[in-house]
Design a protein around this nucleic acid. Sequence first.
RNA 1: GCGUCGGUGGUAGAGUGGUCAAUUACAACAGACUGUAAAUCUGUCGCCUCCGGGCUACGAAGGUUCAAAUCCUUCCCGGCGCA
Length: 415
Amino acid sequence: MSTKPVSFTVVQKIPKSLGRAGVIHTPHGDIETPAFVVVGTKASVKSLMPEDLRQYVGNQVTLANTYHLFLQPGHEVVKAGGGLNAFAHWETPTMTDSGGFQVFSLGAAFGKGVTKFAKGDVETELPARAELNVYSEKHAADHGKLCQIDEDGVTFTSHIDGSLHRFTAERSIEIQHAIGADIIIAFDECTSPTADRAYQEEAMHRTHRWAKRSVLAHKQNYEALKKQGLFGVVQGGRHLDLRAESARILASMDFDGFGIGGSFSKEDLGDSLRVVNEVLPDDKPRHLLGIGEPEDIVEGILQGCDTFDCVQPTRIGRTGTIYVHTGAMKTTPCGTFTYPETKKISVRNEQYKTDHSPLDPLSDGYVAQKYTKAYLAHLFRAGEILGPHLASIHNLYFITNFTKNLRKQILEKSA
RNA sequence: GCGUCGGUGGUAGAGUGGUCAAUUACAACAGACUGUAAAUCUGUCGCCUCCGGGCUACGAAGGUUCAAAUCCUUCCCGGCGCA
């Protein structure tokens, strides 16, 4: 076993595929991969107690966010509270995202309704270029966003109180050291799918420079080095050659694992991942950042990704949309996986007001079995907080278990 | 009985001669959401529509006016006050 705090063991490879089942070892325990990573941005999985996660979800790992915890309550508070695990009473292994996604969500995407997925293949607009040394609230407001990018880092205008803050590679690592998650992520720039190739390339190279600095910053903190693993983030947008180049450059740096970030299009997600994972080393875990619809996870695993975090189960759950099984089974082209077809339904819809069947009769989840659509429909209509709570638990169990079943198939196929 | 205030779309409640099919909120009906600015946001919400518009509407019936939810008359209904 490795002396590094975070290491990876491949347990079983999928024949003729980049995919594998494995185990990520961390100071807070092992993560059996492929695995879904529950998102708890502000050290809180929205509406759930950690006990709910343990008892009804069975997740193995939870992800928080550096930018959000830095603003509130402050990373020093988390540190004084014993670090993320103790502070939030999370007992699973933990990760923190670097704040790189906020460069996108509070920057290019701010107020525009664009998502990480391209709608079509047209580059609809150019992102605002970095404008050096122009940091002001007014400037940010004028540009319709809360952050400005330059070579050295990013200046954020807090979405909470408008105050200005500066993130650099070193600063993000420093904050993540204080927060204390098992796996931390190098500060990157998550680009918009609307950015043109030239900008994707420029941003990618900037992310690489930040990655190099992040490795250095991490190595300089001896205490953190013993307890936390550092992941670098592959970028390159929808351009396969850039993706491959990004993977090549990052693979040459001393990371404990890799995140795959940035924007994709739904159609060539698999191609983008394949190109990247062909290059990344086999003996390190690969995390697909922020993607996790059931079909995406199947594709991601086939193309060699080990872990997936996604906000979707809790976000859609909170407003009454739940995952359910249709009853049909699907098989991947080369027969690797046979998995249940899924769909999303909105339990607020009129038809469910009097539908007293279980949320998802085909699921073995506790909430799916014990609670009915009519009850959830009532809770959401009545504005009861139990509605978002139950729907979130249900969705998290659904996707966590969906992923676990795929792992099981990898192991069974080879047995 | 007299006086007075009021009766507006599913609800509450704006509007008090034209720009009113009628502000707004809620409810209702749908939709969106993929490293969480998110217990959020968007659309529809009188009827019909070839999406240009047409029709019926603000307690009821009459009336004034080029034009009425808005002014006048009577009636019906409700709150309050006085008998």
